[in-house]
Amino acid sequence: MKNKLKSIRTNIPAWALFVLLLTANAAAAQQTGYAQEYRLLKEQIKKNYYQPGANYYMEQAPARPGDRKASYLWPLCALFEAYQVGAVLEKNTRDFEHTFEIIRKYYDKRAPAAGYASYPPELGGGDRFYDDNQWIGITVMHQYELTKAPHWLKAGQEIYRFMMTGSDTASGGGLYWQEGHQNTKNTCSNGPGIVLALELYKATGDSAYLRTAAGVYQWVNRWLRTPEGLYYDNLNVKSHRIDKRVYSYNTGTMLEANVLFYEITRDSAYLAAAQAMAAAADNYFLRNQKLNDNFWFNAVLLRGFVHLWRVDGDRRYLEAFRGAIDHAIAHKTTQGLIGKEETSLNLVPQGGMLELLAQMALLQKQGVIR
């Protein structure tokens, strides 16, 4: 057999062997591409943003004169979900656990319910935003679904209690965006509120969570749904003026909410709504195979697309995302980060891209995308 193989090998022209080698190398690179990109970006985020002495992340890289000693909470929300997906990819929860350790430094026990402040209390504290807390709540529920560890469920339930302090009957229901500022009710504080409530219902079977989700869902669709099936930014509850800016993460949470409702109720109307929303989002946010929004906003949209794919098996939107992400990662800065070369880059979109790469790596590993 050895001699036979040698004979076959020596009968292949040198140029053909070279082509075969290039093809094999390209195929191997394609198989490991997104996982490698995830690791590279993770290293650059730690190098450029993390301050080991203080055990905080910075908001900008490079830091600018007058920057605070730590980032706001929002960038950590982006990193937290990225590392949760990355933990599944790498079968190692170290980065995920460490990020939650830092997030706990933002924990604020003030009345009417404990929650997470926008800035660490030990460094002066800050306002509390319902959406920041909901993003953390969704991530801990993802971890609970994987591990069934009670402390993750407890963390999700505590955030739900804080979230519900932002609910009232003004404009017929819905959730405010910022504690103590009863001006606007935003899709970004209602869409993730629905997702969190549905995840808690799945985990506990408590119908109170399902009633909350259904009520908020009806409110969002009454006030903030666009004619195309996407979502406006917010409603001013006093003037009833609608801020008609449209962001991908708002559509992403409502897309995922519809898929969750379908899984729970088996009502095909929710699945049809999710599929129509996915088509509209693809057309609006992924034009020309580019990520036409903040990377993190797109990461939330991709969560919705992935969840929909798990239900209906349609990969077209995942492939559209793949092309857009490939375009983005072809443009790295001198810092090894992803995006336009600017004086200073914010951590939020870098955390979003980290999640996008982790999601793509998992899908590639499963053979769902190339």
Results as ranks from 00 to 15, higher is better:
residue 3 N to M: 14
residue 321 F to K: 01
residue 168 D to H: 12
residue 141 M to A: 06
residue 61 A to W: 08
residue 181 H to N: 13
residue 38 Y to S: 05
residue 133 N to E: 11
residue 231 Y to F: 15
residue 324 A to G: 06
residue 96 F to I: 01
residue 73 L to G: 04
residue 196 L to F: 06
residue 62 P to D: 06
residue 211 R to P: 00
residue 294 N to A: 07
residue 311 V to K: 00
residue 64 R to C: 01
residue 228 E to L: 11
residue 141 M to E: 05
residue 303 R to C: 00
residue 103 I to K: 06
residue 242 I to L: 02
residue 338 I to R: 01
residue 145 E to P: 00
residue 328 A to K: 04
residue 132 D to L: 04
residue 39 R to V: 11
residue 270 Y to E: 02
residue 133 N to C: 07
residue 355 E to R: 12
residue 75 P to W: 05
residue 139 T to Y: 04
residue 314 D to L: 06
residue 72 Y to C: 00
residue 38 Y to A: 05
residue 291 L to I: 11
residue 186 N to D: 06
residue 250 N to S: 09
residue 105 K to H: 05
residue 329 I to E: 00
residue 33 G to F: 15
residue 331 H to L: 06
residue 351 G to P: 04
residue 209 Y to W: 03
residue 158 E to Y: 02
residue 187 T to H: 10
residue 41 L to T: 08
residue 248 S to G: 10
residue 305 F to D: 09
residue 19 V to N: 02
residue 67 D to Q: 08
residue 339 G to N: 03
residue 121 P to C: 09
residue 126 G to K: 02
residue 263 E to K: 15
residue 23 T to A: 14
residue 134 Q to K: 03
residue 103 I to T: 09
residue 290 K to D: 05
residue 212 T to H: 09
residue 43 E to V: 06
residue 77 C to Q: 06
residue 179 E to G: 02
residue 34 Y to S: 05
residue 271 L to P: 00
residue 361 A to C: 03
residue 21 L to I: 15
residue 204 T to V: 07
residue 103 I to S: 07
residue 142 H to Q: 13
residue 310 R to K: 13
residue 332 K to R: 15
residue 164 M to Q: 14
residue 342 E to W: 01
residue 210 L to V: 09
residue 209 Y to H: 13
residue 83 Y to I: 08
residue 44 Q to N: 14
residue 140 V to G: 03
residue 124 G to E: 11
residue 333 T to H: 08
residue 18 F to V: 14
residue 196 L to A: 02
residue 77 C to Y: 02
residue 359 Q to R: 14
residue 130 Y to V: 02
residue 78 A to I: 11
residue 178 Q to E: 14
residue 297 F to I: 01
residue 190 N to E: 11
residue 189 S to L: 10
residue 165 T to A: 11
residue 164 M to H: 07
residue 56 Y to S: 04
residue 26 A to C: 10
residue 77 C to L: 06
residue 249 Y to F: 15
residue 57 Y to K: 00
residue 357 L to P: 01
residue 294 N to P: 00
residue 301 L to C: 03
residue 255 L to Q: 07
residue 359 Q to Y: 01
residue 199 E to M: 14
residue 303 R to H: 08
residue 356 L to K: 05
residue 319 E to H: 07
residue 299 A to I: 00
residue 126 G to I: 05
residue 27 A to E: 13
residue 346 N to V: 09
residue 44 Q to W: 03
residue 251 T to I: 00
residue 22 L to G: 12
residue 215 G to H: 07
residue 249 Y to C: 08
residue 361 A to W: 00
residue 85 V to K: 11
residue 173 G to K: 08
residue 344 S to I: 08
residue 289 Q to S: 13
residue 60 Q to W: 10
residue 303 R to Q: 10
residue 259 V to S: 01
residue 28 A to I: 15
residue 38 Y to H: 10
residue 247 Y to C: 03
residue 290 K to R: 15
residue 222 R to W: 11
residue 152 W to V: 09
residue 50 Y to L: 12
residue 91 K to S: 13
residue 23 T to I: 15
residue 211 R to T: 14
residue 259 V to C: 06
residue 114 A to R: 08
residue 18 F to T: 15
residue 143 Q to K: 14
residue 348 V to W: 10
residue 301 L to A: 03
residue 285 F to C: 07
residue 182 Q to E: 13
residue 4 K to S: 10
residue 148 K to C: 04
residue 337 L to A: 05
residue 189 S to W: 03
residue 67 D to M: 07
residue 120 P to F: 08
residue 237 V to K: 09
residue 70 A to V: 11
residue 73 L to C: 05
